[in-house]
Nucleic acid binder design. Structure first.
Length: 453
RNA sequence: GGGUCGGUAGAUCAACUUGGUUAGAUCGCUUCCCUGUCACGGAAGAGGUUGCGGGUUCGAGUCCCGUCCGACCCGCCA
């Protein structure tokens, strides 16, 4: 067997003539008879290994016969510059190759049930085989990018005086009303999976002024669309001492600008895999009041939805097209949603109390953010809880923050998977989710028995 | 919850409109040949109760009914 050497990533193959230990998966195997070429993949990339009887010991030659794609192997060899005719300028490591001297098999692999390079794999098959489909560079790229989106959120906010906290996922009362909650047994009583960290981030404003949290939230809605999940990752921020909701919008614009630069700096190759088109982000994202937006749609299409409390999905798409053409922006804020259709903590506009100081952010046809100013006055908040038909006793814990001094504040929540999907032009949000939970799927456990093997 | 569309080798699809011997193709898989390939190439081969059940018919992958599964749209939301 091979001596235990340290792992040498492919990035370090710079010194010609160096002896290295490579550990990775076999990406491809080209058997020319006596000589075998292996493309070996590790976290840093892919490199060609040349395995032939001239340099390889007899036992390794024997083991080599069995090696197939996705087998995990360790190879001791020497880095060599390729001959002029053998250089492949299309590959990042096409200038070099590793001459194998010894090969050990760390794990065998059954033949793949699908083709990792196949771009047309069905959604169902893709999701059922996520543990292997995610190995392809294209899907690796999605989730590397997603990790950097979350990283950018953290980095930007931290630099702006925000403190990160972890919000509980098991909660004693359902927060927002509206959306359905997952119920669960909590010892001898009932509890819920959190639909949002809303109450906790507001409470935390009373402590740190500016906070953010990144975590999963749960919605028990029986929807089946390309933009809904039953578990998704929410990027939440909340900040005190604001003037109104526009301060929150300004914070979001600042982050988005940081985000685009951060991605282009940290994961340029991964963006390129998805034919990255940098979103149009003007200095100030255009903003329309809901009623103004509906009026525009009415004028253009003749369909009068100016009495509706929210936009329909096709109207969101229409408005995104409009904003792109009119303002050269892939983003569009819609503000001032009706008070009656927003949660009880949403701040009403003093000038027009039927509408709120709230906003959604549309990005390439889909809503990716909801935010706004919150009611920070204790009496007003209690009054609203009653007005919404809720019992203030159930909100005592939450209300303590406001009873004992809460500054004017507000915040927002961004759907991480939706943002990822829209940034990369992925049609279905499930494909921008590592392990999506939906109506029909918790990994394989809700799938038909024949898939379980 | 309402609506629309779909289900054929391991994968991606064809054959369905107009019913007709042994349901094809590509990739993958197996065996053999090959020391400069790079998604290597070449030769041969295996692999399908056409989701399931029933019906119409001399005959059904194809038409009809039921059922299961899935995708998409809507409601709701991020």
């Amino acid at each position: 067997m091979l001596p235990q050497l340290r792992v040498l990533s492919l990035e370090t193959i710079s010194k010609i003539g160096q002896e290295v230990l490579l550990q990775g998966w076999v990406n491809a195997r080209r058997n020319l008879g006596k000589i075998v070429f292996l493309d070996l993949r590790d976290r840093s990339g892919v490199v060609q290994v040349v395995a032939g009887p001239r340099d390889l010991d007899a036992a390794s030659v024997d083991r080599l016969k069995d090696v197939r794609p996705e087998w995990v192997v360790a190879i001791r060899g020497v880095v060599q510059e390729r001959g002029e005719k053998q250089k492949n300028p299309e590959l990042p490591t096409g200038r070099v190759e590793v001459i194998a001297k010894e090969l050990a098999i760390l794990a065998s692999a059954e033949p793949l049930p699908l083709d990792l390079e196949d771009e047309k794999i069905g959604l169902d098959i893709h999701l059922d085989f996520l543990p292997i489909t995610l190995r392809s560079p294209k899907w690796q790229a999605v989730f590397k990018i997603q990790a950097e989106i979350a990283e950018s959120f953290r980095a930007y906010l931290r630099s702006d005086g925000f403190t990160e906290f972890a919000a509980p996922k098991i909660v004693g009362s359902s927060t927002e009303g509206g959306a359905n909650v997952f119920r669960l047994k909590y010892f001898d009583r009932e509890a819920f999976l959190a639909q949002s960290p809303q109450f906790y981030k507001q409470i935390m404003v009373g402590i740190f002024e500016r906070v953010f949290t990144v975590g999963n939230v749960y919605r028990a809605e029986e929807h089946a669309t390309t933009r809904h999940l039953n578990e998704y990752t929410s990027l939440d921020l909340e900040m005190g001492f604001i003037h109104d909701h526009t301060d929150i919008m300004a914070t979001e614009i600042g982050w988005l600008r940081h985000l685009l630069n951060h991605l282009e700096q940290t994961v340029p190759a991964e963006l390129q895999q998805w034919q990255w088109q940098r979103p149009l982000l003007p200095e100030v994202i255009p903003a329309l009041k809901l009623r103004e937006a509906q009026q525009l749609i009415k004028e253009d299409t003749g369909v009068d939805h100016t009495a509706e409390p929210d936009l329909e999905p096709h109207e969101e798409r229409w408005l995104s097209e409009y904003a792109k053409a009119k303002f050269q922006s892939d983003f569009l804020f819609i503000t001032h949603y009706p008070t009656a259709k927003r949660p009880m903590y949403t701040y009403p506009d003093e000038a027009d109390p039927d509408y709120t100081k709230s906003f959604d952010l549309l990005f390439r046809g889909v809503e990716i953010t909801t935010g706004g100013q919150r009611i920070n006055n204790y009496e007003q908040l209690v009054g609203n809880i009653k007005k919404w038909g809720l019992n203030p006793d159930n909100f005592k814990f939450y209300l303590e923050s406001f009873r004992y001094g809460m500054p004017p504040e507000g915040g927002l929540a961004v759907g991480l998977e939706r943002l990822t999907a829209r940034l990369l032009g992925i049609d279905n949000v499930k494909l921008a989710t590592l392990f999506p939970r939906d109506l029909n799927r918790i990994d394989l456990q809700l799938s038909p028995p024949e898939y379980k093997q």
